[in-house]
Amino acid sequence: MSMQLLLFQVLNGLGIGMIYFLLSVGLTLIFGLMRFVNFAHGAFYLVAAYIAFALTRWTGSIWLSLVIAPLAVAALAMVVERVLLRHTYRMPHEAQILITFAIALLMQEIVILIFGPLGQNVPVPSALSGIVFLGPYVYPAYRLFVVGVAVLVAIALWLVVEKTKLGSVLRAGSESAEMVGLLGINVDRVFMATFALGGALAGLAGVLFAPIRGVEPFMSVEALGIAFVVIVVGGLGTLSGALVGGLLIGLVQSIMSTLWPEGAQLMIYAAMALVILARPAGLLGRF
């Protein structure tokens, strides 16, 4: 592999990595605060992607869904949290995993019911359909836009978590949600807000991804797998973990895809297993 190509793969990998960050960060926020493993995260992403598909066909471009889909999915996540998940907080982890898995299955079936089982394309908005020259490299403009949004989201989330009242509650809650509750903060509302935020982030990822990979009803399974790998490798429950995990997995996938395509997926799951066994708090985590 020439140096030129390697550099391009690195650049490409960082781009994919930022998208993976966006896909995973909601999952890790929810786990960090509530120790809740949300197997329905991929389904939130799926629903948003299909909302984007439907709105794009209706309005002709993706811009409207960029706002509407994350909000709609945030509302969906809140309803799901309030109606179903709330009852499982006192149950063992297994019950939470199973119920969110069932919810994901249900959403997938509903999507197929409405839109059919076949994959569909979502057009790239015309303003971003070109290519951009980054030095000697050519990069699709839309992808650059997505990476830019992901960077903005990362910065915004960092500001929220580190600088705001909500952020301090989130950080304190991840240490001990019970103690936060005893200090007079309405933990129920914080949980619901966290689910809404997690859903909105998954939704944003779904919309932004739709023009890149199209939509199909089983995209949620693949996305959930990658999101798990990313947050485990970086460290469950931390913002920086999702960022580093996302970039690392993006890089590995991009570079491996030219060397040994079938092995790329094998490698990332091997990395996931290795990190859990050797450094369960993730590469960045405290343990």
Binding site: V37, F228, V232, L236, A273, I276
Partner: peptide
């Protein structure tokens, strides 16, 4: 959770 994740990864 980590046990579940390992079964998934393998």
């Amino acid at each position: 959770v980590y046990f579940v994740m390992l079964t998934l990864a393998f």
